[in-house]
Design a binder for these strands. Structure first.
Length: 263
DNA sequence: AGTCACCTGATT
DNA sequence: AATCAGGTGACT
């Protein structure tokens, strides 16, 4: 499910469920899913934040839970901790009987508990938030000049900008008219400026779209709010030029693009 | 930069 | 049976 827009909306959904009762138990089916879960017991959730594709549950006493949803994860608030869907892999039971649950069919999602002091180290490899003042065209250009990698691979790297994944990296490159195979360092300043704007634009629209409930497993359906330009549209006509959307493989993953619009 | 591992389910 | 999937970290 989740890139930045989906994770952002999960955070919003959780915030709406505050105030929180104390955590009375941490449970999981596989020991690999949650690390140090017992450190959450007895604490209260004070707030929910997002950092890139990570969720942070701020806990009382200077701790936080870091949740990464990976490919198919979702964080649910259950009205009754005893009634958990089959795909719930780890959960926190609250004193009022509710639960915060990691629902994840593929079981790749992870939760770990940390002290506040560990936060900087934990997110050391995350680049700027796309909507923060630190994410500037100049910063993006500096990053581009320092790599040998193809634009798409570079843009999906969480150190370049936090939160872009396979869908929105492809969409942003389309929006900026950039060939995903092109080495990032060879992009012109003007092109990088356009990419900077495209990243924000694509993500803003996606957040609104997910918020409005238009996201579905497998992407956004035809005619729905988010106007998917290339992702998942191999062989279909480009919405801009009418040419054919192509699919190639980069870093073991599919990249979709329009060869006519993206140079 | 590519490949595998981690997991499961859907689709070809 | 093989391939695909919105992620990431550890290999080569």
């Amino acid at each position: 499910m989740p890139e930045l827009p989906e994770v952002e909306c999960v955070a919003e959904r959780l915030r709406a469920a505050a105030p929180w009762a104390r955590i009375v138990r941490a449970g999981q089916f596989r020991p690999s899913t949650m690390q140090d879960g017992r450190m959450a017991v007895g604490r209260r959730i004070d707030g929910v934040e997002r950092r890139g594709k990570n969720l942070l549950l701020r806990l009382s006493g200077g701790w936080f839970a870091r949740v990464h949803l990976r490919m198919t994860g979702d964080l649910l608030v259950l009205a009754d901790a005893r009634l958990r869907p089959e795909t719930v892999r780890a959960w926190f039971e609250l004193e009022d009987g509710r639960a915060v649950a990691l629902d994840d069919p593929r079981a790749l999602g992870r939760i770990s508990l940390h002290k506040e002091q560990e936060e900087a180290e934990l997110f050391r490899s995350l680049g700027p938030e796309p909507f923060s003042p630190e994410f500037t065209p100049e910063a993006l250009e500096a990053s581009a000049r320092a790599t040998e990698r193809a634009a798409k691979i570079w843009l999906m790297d969480q150190r370049t900008v936090a939160g872009l994944g396979n869908i929105y990296a492809a969409e942003a490159l389309f929006e900026a008219g950039i060939d995903p195979r092109r080495p990032a360092r060879r992009l012109s300043r003007a092109r990088l400026g356009r990419l900077h704007g495209a990243v924000r634009e694509v993500l803003s629209l996606a957040i609104e779209s997910v918020r409005a409930g238009y996201a579905r497993p497998g992407g956004f359906a035809e005619g729905e709010f988010y106007p998917v330009a290339v992702y998942g549209r191999e062989g279909e006509p480009c919405r801009r030029c009418g040419g054919t959307v192509k699919r190639i493989r980069q870093g073991g993953r599919s990249t979709y693009y329009c060869p006519k619009c993206q140079k």
